[in-house]
Amino acid sequence: MITATNLTKRYGRVTALDNVSFTITAGEAVALWGANGAGKTTTLRCLLGVQGFEGHLTINGIDVHTQGKAARAAIGYVPQETVFYDMSVLETLHFYARLKKTDSGRANAVLEQVALVEHCAKRVNMLSGGMKQRLALAVALLADPPVLVLDEPTANLDVKAQRDFIHTIQQLNQSGKTIVFSSHRLDEVIALGSRVLVLSDGRLSLECPPHELATKLGLHRWLRIWVPAHHKENTLKVLESQGYAIMPNGRSVYVQVNLGGKIAPLRSLELANIPIEDFDLLDGDLALKEENHD
């Protein structure tokens, strides 16, 4: 169980966390949601006891402030982007196993768990981003800790690697591990989380189940659909007639969708015999950024 009471972190005059309090029970999967600078990573680093903070924070009854090392022993940490030393995969696991006071024989078990056995002799810098992230998870699992802390773990992964990684984390959560993770991705929060803590300017502004997040925050997603140029006009007509908010953009059209209705615009176009060349799903702000780039 994790208990944070009045967690406050200041960097000079900037308050990164302002009296944040929460409790996470064993076996929960809790997402930290918020914009850049909201305090997600700061919260995770406080959990790890690697930075000073005000307030009280315990992990399984261990006071993070006074027993940082013992608290870290109860946590497996996966950063957004792990920088490993220049060693082979197996050497890396043996090194961290020594730091975690774990039998180095565990290395083979965790390699199997993250499907990296065949890459164990490779140097870490030869691994892809997804494999490095799996290795970070393997390191996190070495001592079989009760808590996993993940800082935007899939941010740098391709779609398939994201899906595989989330699946592995889901399995770990089902096996009883407590998961605390930060994320920008709504689908990830919904797939993994059992509860969401929304941080805003260092404050805990909302706490809700993941499926309520989009409604409560007024979040929406954009479906970007590419159609042949000569079907563009008809596409806009069909989508408008269905009541969708749309944004034409070159050969593509952005369609605002809610979380449960992503497939509906595609079906409408299919029924109207409009061929779809490609599509992509984007968060609201991401779509607008792309719009600006275009």
Binding site: V50, K69, R72, Y77, P79, E81, T82, V83, F84, L99
Partner: peptide, 14 residues
């Protein structure tokens, strides 16, 4: 600078 230190310090070490 590379971030390796952050990761090392997130392990159960002082």
């Amino acid at each position: 600078e590379t971030g390796a230190l952050t990761y090392l310090l997130s392990q159960p070490v002082s």
